[in-house]
Amino acid sequence: MSDIIARLQAVDACAVSDALDTLGLPGVALGLERLSTQKPVRGRVTTVRLVPAGRAAPSGRHLGTAAVEASGAGDVIVVDHGGRNDVSGWGGNLSLAAAQRGVEGVIVDGACRDLDESRDLDLPVFARGAVPITARGRVVEQDWNIPVTISGVEVHPGDYVIADGSGVVFIPADRGAEVLDAAEAVVERERQMAEQIRQGVPISQVMGAKYETMLEKA
C-alpha cells in the first residue's frame, strides 16, 4: 500500500474536499451516490471511457475488462459513462471479477446494473443510479487508462479517490501529499471542535467567527 493510500484511510471525503478548497483545487464529483455497500472507497484510479455504440471502433473486448484485469488491491475503477442514466455502464460479472482481484470499488459517471450482485460481493459501487438496460449494442469502450472526465472533474490514471456517504472526491496524483497534509489538519481541527462540544462548550463558541475562515491559507 502506498503512503498516500495509507494516509487516505484516516480522512473522509469532507476533509479532502475542505483541503481542496484550501488549495484552490477542483476534485469533487457531484451527483454520484453509493449504491451497493456502506463501505467507503479509497485508492488509486484506473480509468475507463465509454461512448455510444457507433461513435468509436469496437475494441474487440467487453467494456471494463481490461481495466479489471490490470487492477487489484488499492485500485479503484473509474468509468466515464458520460453521465448517462438510460443504459448501464457496469454490471454483475464485472463486479465479480473486480472483487476477485481485490479491487477497492467502482465509480461510474452514469448508471450501472446488477446492484444486488455487487451488494452480495460487498463491492462498493458509486454511480448516478441503477438501470436494468444492458450496454450490449448500445455502449462500447473507447479506451482505458487514459484521462477522463467524471462529473466535470478531469481525472487521470494514477490519481487518488475517496468516496463515502458524503460523495466522491478526486486528488491529483502530483498533489497527493499536499492535499493529505491539508486534509489531516482539517481532521485534527474538527476533532478538537467535537471534543469541545462533548465537554459542554456552547456550539456558538465552538463554531464562532474563526470557523468561517478556518480553511484560509495562512
Score class of each variant (00 low, 15 high):
Asp120Lys: 09
Val139Ser: 01
Arg61Thr: 13
Glu33Ser: 11
Gly167Trp: 00
His156Pro: 02
Ala135Thr: 01
His81Arg: 01
Val79Ala: 14
Ile203Met: 14
Val45Asn: 01
Gly92Tyr: 03
Leu96Tyr: 10
Lys217Cys: 04
Thr37Trp: 02
Ala111Ser: 04
Asp120Trp: 08
Ala10Met: 04
Gln142Pro: 02
Ala67Phe: 02
Leu35Phe: 10
Arg42Asn: 05
Val108Ile: 15
Pro40Trp: 04
Ala98Phe: 02
Thr134Asn: 07
Arg191Asn: 11
Val168His: 13
Ala29Gly: 07
Leu8Pro: 04
Gln38Tyr: 09
Arg101Trp: 06
Leu30Arg: 15
Glu178Pro: 05
Gly31Ala: 13
Ala98Arg: 03
His62Val: 06
Gly60Ala: 08
Glu141Leu: 13
Met193Lys: 07
Asp3Ala: 14
Ala73Met: 08
Asp174Pro: 02
Lys39Arg: 13
Ala130Cys: 07
Arg128His: 04
Asp159Ser: 03
Val68Asn: 04
Ile5Ser: 14
Gly176Glu: 01
Val179His: 02
Arg61Val: 04
Ala127Met: 11
Met1Trp: 13
Ser204Leu: 03
Asp159Lys: 05
Glu154Arg: 14
Ala66Val: 06
Lys217Pro: 02
Val186Phe: 08
Glu216Asp: 11
Val131Lys: 14
Thr149Ser: 07
Val161Asp: 03
Phe170Glu: 01
Val155Ala: 06
Gly27Trp: 12
Ala57Met: 12
Val139Arg: 01
Ser17Tyr: 00
Val87Gln: 03
Val168Asp: 01
Ala10Thr: 14
Val140Met: 07
Ser204Cys: 06
Gly60Lys: 10
Gly82Asn: 10
Gly60Ile: 08
Ile5Met: 07
Cys14Lys: 15
Thr47Trp: 04
His156Ala: 07
Ile107Ala: 07
Ile203Ala: 07
Thr37Val: 12
Ile162Cys: 14
Val68Phe: 11
Glu184His: 13
Ile107Met: 04
Thr213His: 07
Ala177Cys: 13
Gly91Leu: 03
Ala57Tyr: 05
Pro132Cys: 15
Asn85Pro: 03
Glu104Cys: 14
Gly176Met: 01
Pro40His: 08
Ala15Glu: 00
Thr149Leu: 09
Val148Asn: 08
Ala10Arg: 13
Ala57Asn: 05
Val139Pro: 00
Val155His: 02
Trp144Ala: 15
Ala10Gly: 09
Arg7Thr: 04
Gly102Tyr: 04
Ala185Lys: 09
Leu180Ile: 09
Glu195Gly: 06
Val168Ser: 06
Thr65Gly: 08
Arg101Gly: 01
Gly64Leu: 12
Ala73Arg: 14
Thr213Glu: 01
Met1His: 10
Asp120Thr: 09
Thr213Lys: 10
Val140Phe: 07
Asp86Thr: 12
Arg138Tyr: 08
Pro147Val: 01
Ala209Ile: 15
Gly92Ala: 11
Asn145Val: 10
Tyr160Cys: 00
Glu188Cys: 12
Arg34Val: 00
Glu154Gly: 09
Val186Trp: 01
Gln205Ala: 14
Arg119Lys: 13
Gln142Phe: 11
Leu63Cys: 12
Val68Lys: 05
Gly54Phe: 11
Met214Glu: 03
Arg175Lys: 14
Ala185Met: 09
Leu115Arg: 11
Thr65Asn: 06
